[in-house]
Each structure stands twice: as C-alpha cells, then as structure tokens.
Computed example of a mutant assay.
Amino acid sequence: MVIVLVSFVALAKIFCSMYVNLIRAFDTLQKLGSFMEMLFGGRYVLLLMSLFSIYCGLIYNEFFSVPFHIFGGSAYKCRDATCSDAHSAGLIKFRDPYPFGVDPSWRGSRSELPFLNSLKMKMSILLGVTQMNLGIILSYFNAHFFRNSLDIRYQFVPQMIFLNSLFGYLSLLIIIKWCTGSQADLYHVMIYMFLSPTDDLGDNQLFWGQRPLQIVLLLLALVAVPWMLFPKPFILKKLHYERFQGRNYGMLISSEFHPDAEPDSAREHHEEFNFSEVFVHQMIHSIEFVLGAVSNTASYLRLWALSLAHSELSTVFYEKVLLLAWRYDNIVIRLIGLAVFAFATAFILLMMETLSAFLHALRLHWVEFQNKFYHGDGYKFKPFSFASITDDDD
C-alpha cells in the first residue's frame, strides 16, 4: 500500500508539472480546436479549483479517501484495548482537539456519518450566509456609486437587518455550539423562535439572555419587511411631485416676462409618475428578498450534498475496487483493480465531479449571490478586457 501511495504522489507531481507547462504554452496550443480553446481559456479557474481541492483534502486530512494523521496524533482512542477504530462501539476523547481540520479517527467509526453530516451542513450555512451578506454589501457600494440614498436607507439597511436577524443569528448559534460543545437542538431553537418566542428554552439555551435576544431579533425581522416595502414608493412619488411643481412654477414665472413662451405642458412632455407600477415593483422585490432569504440559504446545502457524494464515491472506489483487488495474491487481478481505480478516479472523480461542483458553484454565484446587487436593467454586460480598451483607443 505504501508503494501505491508513493506512486500516486509521483503521478500527482507529474500531472502538476504538465499542467504548469500547458498554462505556459497556451499561446501555441490555443488553435487545437473549440474544446481545447474552452479548456485552456479556463486554465486559471481549473488551477484555482485544484488548489482548493488540495486545501479541502487538508481540512479533512484525507488523501484518496485514506485518512492521514498529518498534524499529529488523534484526540480520540478506543473504549477498550481490544477494539479497532473501524469497528468500535465509539471513541473516547483523551486529549486536546486535533490542531487542524477533521480528526482522522472519525473516519471508519460508527459515528462518522452523523458527525461529518452535521459538520458539512453547518459549514454550508456559514458559507452561504457570509456570501449573501457580501452580496448585500456590494449593493451598498452600487447605491453609493450612483448616489442613491433611498436604496441605502430603504433597501440595504432593512435587508441586512432581516437576513442577519434570522440566518445571521443561526450562524452565531452554530459557532457558539461548536465552541461550547453544547447539545442544543438548533432546529428546535429556530422553529420555536417563531412559534413560541416567549417559552423557556430549557436545554436548548446556549447563552444567558438568549430568549429576550430572540424576541428582539424577531421584531427587527418583522419591522424590516414593511421598511423595505412602503417608504420608497411614497418618497419617490413625493420627490417627483415636488420636482414637477417646481418646474411648473419656474415656467409660469418665465411666461409672465415672455408672453410668447409656451406653457410647460405644451413645451415639454412630462413623463407621468405611475405610482401603482412603482409600488408593485417594490412589493415584488421585497417579497422576493424575504422568500429568497430562506430558499437561498437552503440552496447552499448543495455544498453539503456535493461533499458527501464525493466522499462516499472516493470511499467506494478505494475500498471496493483497489483494496478488494489487493486482497488477491495475483498480479493480474491487482493490475486490473489498479487500472479500474485509476480510470474511475480520473474520469469520474476528477472530471465529472469537478464539472458538477463547478456548475453548482456557478449557480450559487449567479442566483444566490448576484441577485443581491446585480439588476441588469437594460445594459448589456461587457466583461473587462484590455483588448476592448485598445480597440476603443484606435
């Protein structure tokens, strides 16, 4: 087995060197066809995906679904001297937590799936809430750039309050539960925060003052909804009316000094303010954000599903293909098992799983992230390009 792992490390180094050389030779290889042009056009994206996959391997302390104690010994041990980590009834903690990432001893234990499922699900929520907050913050910079103070006061502020009063609070509970080791049921806490906010939390209380804080956060979330919906349309109507009255007043004064001057209604076409259209648009935007705050947060759980599927596929290929073939004392069967394992790893895990993860991540960026700040109101999207700047100068 050590020889196999060393061989995989050598192959990984060879592939890395080949990939770097391909990046350098892009100018000479970009005429190989449309597929190769697309592949080489995304070479830096693939490089970043490779680096982050290595980082995820370090987080889970795994290499080809094999756990490694990279950062020292485990913090857990068997309950008795005769058990093994893979078939034990449970592990007991006997020293400080593992210094980095997931403790490798969780792998193979009976509590592996409940532990990793809970960890990955909570990590997905934390990443999702962080990215959605970043999208709302970008909407502030958009409003600041266009000097639109109404969007700052009546969209950015209530959106930040609503999202963080509910799901920001959930993220805080997750972090507190991790730090304190509490056994509180966060599902129960969030559900009864709406159904029975004044009831005693009992064993689900994570910190002092949690119940009054939940009531305040719930009231803030309820206030944020009409804050997003009502003020902006009425303020726009008032500003439009004042602007229109001021222009009429100026034209009446000028017509007194210039009898030949035409009244404003005849000289200048005035665009009528459609209050119902503006109000319906704002109502749709508010409802979309409120419902999207729930659905978008749940959509980030696809990260949990992808990680779980990738981990289980890796385990199946390693245990049911490579190790199964290695049990036979036959060089032909071992070579066939190694070939099948290499093929499955390269084409299923590295190609199909990479494409699946890329598409899911692209969807999260396009829908859950960009709908917080990007509108595309009639302007064609033009990506930044030095070539287009040169063409404009010419």
Rank of each mutant, 00 (worst) to 15 (best):
M1C: 10
F8W: 05
F8L: 03
L11G: 04
A12K: 13
V20T: 00
L29G: 01
L32H: 00
S34I: 01
F35Q: 11
E37I: 04
L39I: 12
Y44M: 12
L46A: 03
M49A: 13
M49Y: 11
S53W: 12
L58W: 03
P67F: 00
H69R: 12
I70E: 02
F71A: 05
F71Q: 04
Y76D: 09
K77M: 09
D80V: 12
A81I: 06
C83Q: 04
H87M: 01
I92A: 14
D96N: 15
Y98I: 11
P99Y: 03
V102A: 00
D103I: 07
S105I: 04
W106Y: 11
W106K: 09
S111M: 10
E112Y: 05
F115S: 12
F115W: 13
N117K: 09
S118W: 05
S118P: 03
K120P: 04
M123V: 03
L127R: 04
L127M: 05
M132E: 11
N133C: 08
S149Y: 07
L150F: 15
D151C: 13
Q155R: 14
Q159P: 03
L166H: 08
L172W: 14
T180I: 07
G181L: 06
S182I: 08
D185T: 01
L186A: 03
H188F: 01
V189A: 11
Y192H: 12
D199Y: 14
F207S: 14
W208L: 00
W208P: 00
Q210G: 07
R211F: 05
P212H: 14
I215K: 15
V216F: 08
L218G: 02
L220V: 01
L220Y: 06
L220C: 04
L229T: 02
F230P: 07
K232P: 03
I235W: 01
Y241E: 06
E242K: 15
E242Y: 08
R243A: 12
Q245H: 11
R247S: 00
R247W: 01
N248F: 08
Y249W: 12
M251T: 12
E256Y: 14
D260V: 13
P263S: 15
A266S: 07
H270T: 09
N274R: 14
F275Q: 05
I284P: 07
H285Y: 06
S286A: 15
S286N: 12
S295C: 11
R302Q: 13
W304R: 10
L308Y: 11
L308E: 08
H310M: 14
S314A: 07
S314W: 04
V316C: 02
V316N: 02
V316S: 03
K320C: 00
K320A: 00
K320M: 01
V321W: 00
L322K: 14
L323N: 04
L324M: 04
A325D: 07
R327Q: 11
N330M: 05
I333E: 05
I336K: 06
F341Y: 15
A342D: 00
A344K: 02
A344F: 02
L350M: 01
M351S: 03
A361Q: 09
E368H: 10
F373S: 08
F373Q: 09
Y374F: 06
H375D: 03
G378Q: 07
Y379S: 02
K380I: 04
K380E: 03
F381V: 14
K382D: 06
F384C: 13
S388I: 10
